[in-house]
């Protein structure tokens, strides 16, 4: 066997798979940052003085920063901004990412006459 046929997401083989995988990585990074990066940002910019008592499932009661910040106190379309971002924008972004990937892969497949 002179050809490497081992499939590994991080070591793509063949022209088609190489291009496909780099696009997949790009989309997954955007996807992850958009959802969890934003969560981290909410935590990061939170006003440390706005706290609340939270009862944990262990029964312990702790004082916790509630996450109040300019992201939650700015109104956008009537919404607190972060709520709009999570409940509406992110879903639209997911649809866009899927659409983008489908366009890309259709083109790649026709170039490689793959069905």
């Amino acid at each position: 066997m002179e050809k490497d046929i081992n499939i590994n997401f991080f070591k793509p083989v063949g022209d088609f798979m190489t291009k496909d995988v780099s696009m997949k990585k790009l989309i997954l990074v955007i996807w992850f940052v958009a959802v969890y990066g934003f969560l981290f940002l909410l935590k990061l910019v939170a006003d440390p003085n706005a706290t609340a008592q939270v009862k944990l499932s262990t029964g312990e009661v702790v004082t916790q920063v509630v996450g109040k910040s300019f992201l939650t106190e700015t109104q956008f379309l009537g919404f607190p901004f972060h709520y709009w971002y999570s409940a509406q924008f992110c879903i639209a972004l997911f649809i866009f990412l899927c659409w983008w990937y489908c366009k890309f892969i259709d083109k790649l497949e026709s170039e490689h006459s793959k069905k």
């Binding site: 969560l39 981290f40 909410l42 935590k43 509630v66 996450g67 939650t72 607190p80 709520y83």
Partner: peptide, 21 residues
């Protein structure tokens, strides 16, 4: 009731992440 819209007023960011993922 501000806890309705504030992100971490009832649960932690970790639990939000764990459930979502």
């Amino acid at each position: 009731d501000a806890s309705y819209y504030l992100p971490f007023a009832k649960y932690t960011a970790y639990h939000w992440f764990a459930l979502c993922i």
